[in-house]
């Protein structure tokens, strides 16, 4: 678990699974979620195990989230933006994508 140290910076609010989270600009989405106490990021693609951030540097692909409707976003590499809608990544990710 993590906590935020006090810091300056422009306030930003994002939406995670329908919850409003407050954070500041200049943070990655992964950092913002961890700082708000969120640990569970996604289900693993093969057996649906719970997974969370591992490396924080773009290597492990464990931090994948659905951001603004787009799945598979590497959240440790993407900065928060006001109003971003974020969801946990489920598997498989195209269930309702493609009906005829």
């Amino acid at each position: 678990m993590f906590k935020k140290l006090p810091q300056n910076g422009e306030k930003v609010s994002i939406d995670f699974e329908g919850k409003r989270l407050e954070t500041v600009t200049g943070q990655t989405v992964a950092a913002a979620l961890l700082g708000s106490g969120e640990m569970l990021f996604r289900e693993s693609a093969v057996t649906g195990q719970p997974r969370s951030v591992y490396c924080m540097m773009g290597v492990c692909f464990e931090c994948l989230l659905e951001i603004d409707g787009k799945p598979n976003q590497q959240s440790c590499m993407i900065l928060v933006q006001e109003g971003m809608k974020i969801r946990r990544q489920q598997r498989p990710i195209m269930e309702n994508h493609a009906s005829a």
Binding site: A45, V46, R91, P92, I93, M94, E95, H97, A98
Partner: peptide, 14 residues
């Protein structure tokens, strides 16, 4: 004769 192939991530059975 060369053949190039691509593969994507997993998705639901479509």
């Amino acid at each position: 004769q060369k053949g190039q192939v691509l593969v994507t991530e997993r998705t639901s059975k479509l």
